[in-house]
């Protein structure tokens, strides 16, 4: 078939030369490459002891953020649940009662907030959808492997970031 454009470059196979026909030079060359690697520095990272540097934007395990006063930011607007393509997020909203201002930033808050880590595909759409800067995918934590399916429903107890004690500030 004639060519469609003038930008083609023919890379079709060439006949083997005599030395290529004899197998050995190419084999020797290959052996040379592999033995060179034999003495090279190894690229392995010993995982459980050393961890590989992850990027700052890595989408790891979810966290529900608190604001600077330690109140939960989530207002249970449900955008994350809608944005989730895997339907992994469920929540129920509740009205903030008097005296809970230090716990919840807005008048509405998530009574329960569950992420099913098995379904979650860590696409980051929930983080993007959140208008309150409440849910983030942390770059330094990965969802660990577990034995039971039930353990993967992460409730608020595991999602909300722990209160920072004032001393550390």
């Amino acid at each position: 078939m004639e060519l469609l454009s003038n930008r083609s470059k023919n890379v079709a196979q060439k006949e083997m030369t005599l030395s290529e026909r004899m197998y050995l030079p190419a084999i020797a060359q290959g052996l040379g490459i592999t033995i060179k690697h034999f003495f090279k520095k190894k690229a392995t990272i010993n995982y459980p002891e050393e961890t590989r540097q992850r990027s700052d934007v890595w989408r790891g395990l979810h966290v529900l953020k608190r604001d600077e006063n330690g109140a939960e930011r989530c207002t249970a607007c449900g955008l994350c649940a809608v944005a989730c393509p895997a339907e992994a997020i469920t929540m129920t909203a509740g009205e903030r009662k008097k005296g809970e201002e230090h716990l919840y930033r807005e008048e509405k808050y998530a009574v329960t907030y569950e992420v099913n880590m098995l379904r979650c595909i860590f696409c980051g759409l929930c983080e993007e959808a959140c208008p309150k800067a409440a849910i983030f995918l942390q770059d330094d934590k990965l969802a660990p492997a577990r034995y039971e399916r039930e353990e993967f429903i992460y409730g608020k107890d595991r999602l909300v970031e722990p209160l920072k004690t004032t001393e550390t500030k």
Binding site: A76, G78, A81, V82, C84, I89, M91, T92, N116
Partner: peptide, 10 residues
Amino acid sequence: EDKIDTYFGR
């Protein structure tokens, strides 16, 4: 089985 109606439904 694990599907619970999402908050806003779809």
